[in-house]
Computed example of a mutant assay.
Amino acid sequence: MQFANSFEVSLPPEQAWPVLMDVTSVVPCMPGAELTEVIDDRHFKGKVSVRLGPVALSFNCTAAFEDVDDTAHRARIVSRGTDAKGRGGANATIALSLSPSAKGSRVDVQTDLAMSGAVAQYGRGSGVIQSVATQIISQFSKNLEARIEQLRGAGALDAPGSTQAAAVAPVHAASTPPAAPAPVQAKPISGFALLWASFRATAKGWFGAR
């Protein structure tokens, strides 16, 4: 199944891109996500916890940046996850792109998701998955903006167009300057919030079909 999400951040693309590509700084902003190992600057391991309807799932995941264009501000990430209880898996290809906006930058996320085993039944219906994804992305964007404010307050962001910002290419595992404060791990979205999101998606399908 395929779906799209977008949000904005209060930084121009040349500043926002290094922040987004700093995996060790950004993953803590994602509800339910945990970075467990940095293999190299493009390969990572982690855990993702999410609730689909009444079922809580926990995936052991690997993620790889298969294509990164720092000039065009585009990246493709491939992630593979296996449910910790052996109920199936989920594979995703995520296309990430950045463009200027009135606020600063617009982040577009295109996701191609395939689920297998019992977990595919829990997430049956693209409306439910899209609703849960939207809830997670919404919280992620808020956490990311808080992280940006944290970096801004610490003076850890280069001025747009500065020689330093233009000369330093992002290092995907640790692009944040040494003086940057440590990120705060995001709290998982409550089960109630995800259940409500799933219910709204299901109800929309019921009434939309009539």
Rank of each mutant, 00 (worst) to 15 (best):
E8M: 02
S58T: 14
R147N: 10
A118W: 03
A166T: 14
N143E: 14
V38W: 06
A33R: 01
A75L: 00
L11P: 04
F192N: 00
S190D: 12
N5K: 08
V168T: 10
M115W: 01
Q110H: 13
S6N: 14
K142H: 15
A186S: 14
S79E: 15
V68H: 12
S190R: 04
P13L: 00
V68F: 07
T36I: 05
K103V: 01
G46A: 14
H43Y: 02
G53L: 09
R80E: 15
V107W: 03
Q185H: 08
Q121Y: 04
R210D: 10
D108K: 05
A133S: 12
V109R: 00
P28E: 14
V78P: 00
T202N: 06
M1F: 05
I189Q: 02
L144M: 13
I94G: 01
T93G: 11
V168W: 00
S175E: 03
Q139N: 10
F3E: 06
E14N: 13
S105I: 01
A84P: 00
L96I: 05
Q110W: 05
M1W: 07
R124L: 12
K45W: 01
N5I: 03
G104Y: 05
A197C: 11
P188S: 13
G161P: 08
M30Y: 15
S131H: 03
R200T: 12
N143L: 01
V168K: 11
D158F: 09
G161K: 09
R124F: 14
D22A: 11
V132S: 09
W17C: 02
D41N: 15
A193V: 15
R106A: 11
C29L: 02
V55A: 15
G104A: 08
V109D: 01
H172M: 01
I136M: 13
C29V: 02
G46C: 11
L20G: 08
G208H: 14
Q15F: 02
I136R: 04
A165G: 06
D112I: 03
S97I: 00
G208V: 13
R80S: 15
G32D: 08
N5R: 13
R76K: 15
T82A: 14
A4M: 07
A165T: 08
T36A: 05
N91Y: 01
A4W: 03
V9C: 08
L11M: 09
A75P: 07
P54F: 12
P178A: 13
V68A: 14
K45D: 10
